[in-house]
Amino acid sequence: MNGAQDMGGMHGFGPVAPEPDEPVFHAEWERRAFALTLAMAMPGGWNIDMSRFARESLPPGEYLARSYYEIWLAGLERLMAERGLVSAAEIAAGAPQGAAKPVARVLSRSDVLQVLHRGGPTERPATAPARFEAGDRVRARNMHPATHTRLPRYVRGHVGTVERLHGCHVFPDTNALGKGESPQWLYTVCFAGTELWGADADPAVRVSVDAWDSYLEPA
């Protein structure tokens, strides 16, 4: 979706402000919001693409006004509300109203390290050969789905070169909607800075994205 999360190439946000000796978290609530978000994926049953879609579905003004963990919190509340796990009224009241909905599994302390170590690999066995090989010229499709996608606006319509093949990976555009993993070949596609930003751009800059097969067409 063409939401506020798709920031590549926007102007006006000012300089990057590194913080010396930055702590991992800046407040106790950030610690808890982080951990709640990780822990709730198991009983909630959503995947990482659904989580990203929930966060980027915030209205652009709100997305830009909120801090990072405030965006996570809003995304978590949305995912839980959609599944009838926690309602806005319960959060307002600060207490459960009614019985808990049964969930398949809860993340226990003894499972934490194993779950983190296992992670969530997204590579799947290839069922067909790759359409492109390294060195092929490809165009990023001009597409504007209103739902989740991982093809940023700043490369759409532009021509680049396939640089690496990564095997077949879960396709976020369908996975975010609960329509299946539909794995596709994934490529690193590299663009000249001048292709993306015009003749005035730095000629010694190249930018790549990782693009699924259906984001691309031969050029």
Partner: peptide, 23 residues
């Protein structure tokens, strides 16, 4: 966030000790 953690714990969806270990 405190309200949320309290609700989720009471509903049995999260184990606060697991949250501590994640952090």
């Amino acid at each position: 966030v405190r309200a949320l953690e309290s609700i989720l714990t009471q509903k049995g969806y999260v184990d606060p000790a697991a949250l501590d270990l994640l952090i």
